[in-house]
Lab assay of single mutants.
Amino acid sequence: TLFEALYDYEARTEDDLSFHKGEKFQILNSSEGDWWEVRSLTTGETGYIPSPYLA
């Protein structure tokens, strides 16, 4: 399933992933509550992002 970022986000820890509004992601793991592990389709990087920032 693909999701798109609604807002920009700046990583706060080394496990987080910074991203920009409009960036698209593949969800790798959504079992961690509000923090999902994703792969950016723009950069190929993986990390955790806050799920409320996605649509």
Score class of each variant (00 low, 15 high):
Thr1Asn: 11
Thr1Phe: 12
Thr1His: 11
Leu2His: 06
Leu2Lys: 03
Leu2Glu: 06
Leu2Val: 13
Leu2Asn: 04
Leu2Tyr: 13
Phe3Ile: 04
Phe3Asp: 14
Phe3Trp: 15
Phe3Pro: 01
Phe3Leu: 06
Glu4Ala: 08
Glu4Val: 14
Glu4Ile: 15
Ala5Glu: 03
Ala5His: 04
Ala5Thr: 04
Ala5Pro: 02
Ala5Arg: 01
Leu6Thr: 14
Leu6Pro: 09
Leu6Ala: 07
Leu6Asp: 07
Leu6Cys: 12
Leu6His: 05
Leu6Gln: 08
Tyr7Trp: 13
Tyr7Asn: 05
Tyr7Cys: 13
Tyr7Ile: 07
Tyr7Arg: 07
Tyr7Phe: 10
Asp8Arg: 15
Asp8Tyr: 04
Asp8Trp: 04
Asp8Lys: 03
Asp8Gln: 03
Asp8Thr: 07
Tyr9Lys: 07
Tyr9Trp: 07
Tyr9His: 05
Tyr9Glu: 00
Tyr9Asn: 02
Glu10Leu: 10
Glu10Lys: 11
Ala11Lys: 08
Ala11Arg: 07
Ala11Cys: 07
Ala11Glu: 01
Ala11His: 04
Ala11Ser: 13
Arg12Glu: 08
Arg12Cys: 12
Arg12Ala: 10
Arg12Asp: 07
Arg12Thr: 12
Thr13Met: 09
Thr13Gln: 14
Thr13Glu: 07
Thr13His: 13
Thr13Pro: 03
Glu14Asn: 12
Asp15Val: 12
Asp15Gln: 12
Asp15Thr: 13
Asp16Trp: 12
Asp16Cys: 14
Leu17Val: 14
Leu17Ser: 03
Leu17Trp: 05
Leu17Met: 13
Leu17Ile: 11
Ser18Gln: 03
Ser18Trp: 05
Ser18Ile: 08
Ser18Leu: 04
Phe19His: 03
Phe19Ala: 06
Phe19Cys: 05
His20Arg: 14
His20Val: 13
Lys21Asn: 03
Lys21Gly: 02
Lys21Met: 07
Lys21Pro: 03
Gly22Asp: 02
Gly22Gln: 01
Gly22Glu: 01
Gly22Cys: 05
Gly22Leu: 01
Gly22Met: 15
Glu23Ile: 02
Glu23Tyr: 04
Glu23Pro: 01
Glu23Asp: 14
Glu23Ala: 04
Glu23Val: 02
Lys24Ser: 04
Lys24Met: 13
Lys24Tyr: 11
Lys24Pro: 03
Lys24Val: 12
Lys24Ile: 14
Lys24Gly: 02
Lys24His: 06
Phe25Val: 00
Phe25Thr: 00
Phe25Lys: 00
Phe25Leu: 05
Gln26Ser: 05
Gln26Ala: 08
Ile27Phe: 08
Leu28Val: 06
Leu28Gln: 01
Leu28Trp: 01
Leu28Glu: 01
Leu28Thr: 03
Leu28Ile: 10
Asn29Ser: 13
Asn29Phe: 05
Asn29Met: 05
Ser30Asp: 12
Ser31Thr: 11
Ser31Ile: 08
Ser31Leu: 09
Ser31Lys: 08
Gly33Arg: 11
Gly33Asp: 09
Gly33Asn: 10
Gly33Gln: 09
Gly33Trp: 10
Gly33Ile: 08
Gly33His: 10
Asp34Arg: 05
Asp34Met: 12
Asp34Lys: 12
Trp35Ile: 08
Trp35His: 04
Trp36Arg: 00
Glu37Ile: 12
Glu37Lys: 14
Glu37Pro: 00
Glu37Cys: 14
Val38Trp: 15
Val38Met: 02
Val38Glu: 00
Val38Pro: 00
Arg39Lys: 08
Arg39Tyr: 07
Arg39Met: 10
Arg39Trp: 04
Arg39Cys: 04
Ser40Ile: 13
Ser40His: 06
Leu41Tyr: 04
Leu41Arg: 00
Thr42Asn: 06
Thr42His: 08
Thr42Ser: 11
Thr42Tyr: 08
Thr42Asp: 08
Thr42Met: 09
Thr42Arg: 14
Thr42Val: 09
Thr43Asp: 01
Thr43Leu: 00
Gly44Ala: 01
Gly44Ser: 14
Gly44Ile: 15
Gly44Asn: 06
Gly44Gln: 05
Gly44His: 04
Gly44Tyr: 04
Glu45Trp: 10
Glu45Ser: 08
Thr46Phe: 06
Thr46Gly: 01
Thr46Ser: 06
Gly47Leu: 06
Tyr48Asn: 07
Tyr48Val: 06
Tyr48Cys: 09
Tyr48Phe: 11
Ile49Asp: 01
Ile49Tyr: 00
Pro50Trp: 15
Pro50Phe: 15
Pro50Asn: 08
Ser51Asn: 14
Ser51Lys: 09
Pro52Arg: 15
Pro52Ser: 15
Pro52Trp: 15
Pro52His: 15
Pro52Ile: 15
Pro52Val: 15
Pro52Phe: 15
Tyr53Ala: 12
Tyr53Val: 06
Tyr53Lys: 06
Tyr53Thr: 06
Leu54His: 07
Leu54Ala: 08
Leu54Tyr: 07
Ala55Gly: 10
Ala55Ile: 12
